[in-house]
Simulated assay, not measured.
Amino acid sequence: MHCLTKTGVRLFFILALAFLLSGGCAGKRAANINEARAVRDLGEAYLIQGSYSRALQEFLKAEQLNPRDPYLYNNMGLTYLALDRPESAVLSFKKAVNIKSDYAPAQNNLATAYMATGNWDEAIEVLKLLSEDLLYATPHYALSNLGWAYYNLSNYDAALRYYNRSLRHEPRHPPALRGQAMTFSAMGRMSEALRSADRLTTELPQNDAAWMLKGEILEKMNQKEEAKKAYEEALRTAGEDTAMKDDAESALRRLK
């Protein structure tokens, strides 16, 4: 039986210590990840409740524990959007996508954040790739966002094309119906705009913005009595939205 030399014993000890330390680090990392997930879950609860500042506090804590969590950065991005900080949202969504390149919801959210900053071309670049992803389960979101980007660039033909594609995937998708109505109206195709607005108010009968849009289209068509009814519905469904109430009341005064 061979005996270990002093050098061999020392080497054996160093290797054993390294093994124990590496195992300890791995255990610590696993503990951090579990703790980070719990903190992230708490932040999600605050996000759902609309407590955005408290949500962000928890997400920042979770980031310190696990800075490689794409779902955390997606949540952070949504929180920054809710806090009207779209530039910070862009950075968070980018981190999510850089960590998980096939994270489709984060890609769509990144495009939304780009649009919130007025970077329409960057949004279109992201959304086109996403809309062509055959594994993306909800392409109507990306397609309707593409429609919105092109609408804001006054490229109404392209906007309408993408809204129509979105509605082929999901015929009752409200953002696409709204965008389609607005695009038809901008193009002067008022009868088609009204049909889209009718479908929108059918899908969202308690949505003040839907009724407001319908009223604006009817007013442009000089159908004043029907426009008044739509504006009255917008006023009725506005709830605590004082800005919408003011818009609806202003429209009704205009039609007197």
Rank of each mutant, 00 (worst) to 15 (best):
Q223M: 10
H140N: 08
S154M: 09
L153A: 06
K6V: 13
I124H: 05
M190N: 14
M1R: 10
M244Q: 04
D102P: 00
A210Y: 02
A89S: 00
A45G: 12
G118C: 07
Q107G: 03
T117Q: 14
K224P: 04
D84A: 15
G118P: 10
A111G: 13
A243T: 10
E225A: 07
A62V: 01
A176Y: 06
I217R: 02
D41Y: 06
A106L: 03
V126W: 00
L91N: 14
D246G: 13
D41K: 10
A30T: 09
L110G: 00
L235P: 02
K61W: 00
N207Y: 05
L235N: 03
Y163M: 03
S131E: 07
M1H: 07
E63K: 07
T237H: 14
T7I: 15
R199H: 11
P175Q: 06
T79M: 00
L143F: 03
F93G: 02
L235F: 06
Q49I: 01
D84Y: 10
I99N: 02
M187Y: 11
F59A: 01
Y150N: 03
F184G: 08
N155T: 15
K228M: 04
R168D: 13
T79E: 00
S191P: 10
E44M: 13
D208S: 15
A149V: 08
L134Q: 13
Y163G: 03
A176Q: 10
N75M: 03
I217C: 03
L167I: 04
Y114W: 02
D246T: 13
Y136K: 04
E122G: 06
H2M: 15
M182Y: 08
F12C: 10
I14L: 15
P174R: 08
L194A: 13
